[in-house]
Amino acid sequence: MSDLKQLLKELSEADGLGGILDALEVAEQHLKKYASVRREGNNLVGEMKGKSDYTVMLDAHIDQIGMVVTAIKKGFLRVANVGGIDRRMLAAMRVNIHGKRTVTGAFCSTPTHLGNVDKAKNIEDMYIDTGLGEKASEVISVGDRVTFRQSFSDLSGTCVTGKSLDNRAGCAALIRCAKTLSGKELPCNVVFLLSDAEEINGSGAKTRAFSVDPDEAVAVDVSFGNAPDIEPEKTGVLGDGAMLGVSPLLAKNVTDALKSAAVKSGAKFQYEVMGGKTATNADHIALTRQGVPTGLLSIPLRNMHTPVEVVDLADVESVATILSTYILSK
């Protein structure tokens, strides 16, 4: 578990948003120990050859939510969100501004003497303080990416917290799976896809699923973890294992194979039943070319799209175990 924690820490603390490839770099360093890797655009593709021509693609998106600079005004920045951001948490939050060099900034917080702060401002009405004054324009340009500045930390038991665990937890599960499979004789080809731009439009998964042209696929992402203020039926319980996606959109044979793998390996799992789209890359991959039978495994995660996302490493391990068992059982 300590290996997994170190891997997830490295992935979490690196940034990956719209051409910033630090997280991709970290993933590449790990995945290349087990698979033959190449970059396709801002995506990482790792391949392991098997005995047959049949190809299974495992996907986890490696991009993260963030912001982009839209205007610079005397050292203060206006930004637009990239992906869904809870504007209620932004005041006084620290960020990394990816300019000519990386600059620490903080969202301006409205002082109480200025009156009613009961309502959270729209993100486009907020400012980021760069502390650089008039010199900001020398370092920062419109279009520069902005990410949450947050380190990774242990919590109680096997829980951890950090930024971008959506979906670096999924990336970590894929890398763990690759490690388990490495050196083994594989029944089929396995392609590991760490895909870009899920938080925007899924273009990474759409275009790479097209180029890889797999026979079947499994998407790995995060989903809502249990919390006191959310109805239990909308969540998975942290520590209760991988959430096995069940939806009309997902291929029943793949879902069944994942379930059998969970049972066979003894890995904990729980169901996540959806009525249609899954709001993950599975939606895109399934509709590629003439259609790809696709399954979905999710890791329960609290505080999604904040710098303090929480996952249980045991659930990441469950996903990795189910994936490797599923591949070896093909």
């Binding site: 869904g84 809870d86 504007r87 401002k121 919390a227 959310i230 999604m304 799209h305």
Partner: peptide, 17 residues
């Protein structure tokens, strides 16, 4: 961590409050 309901689950009213 001081936790919050995910932004995906907030009603229009909750989003700014």
């Amino acid at each position: 961590v001081i936790s919050t309901k995910p932004v995906h689950m907030l009603s229009a009213d909750e989003k700014s409050k």
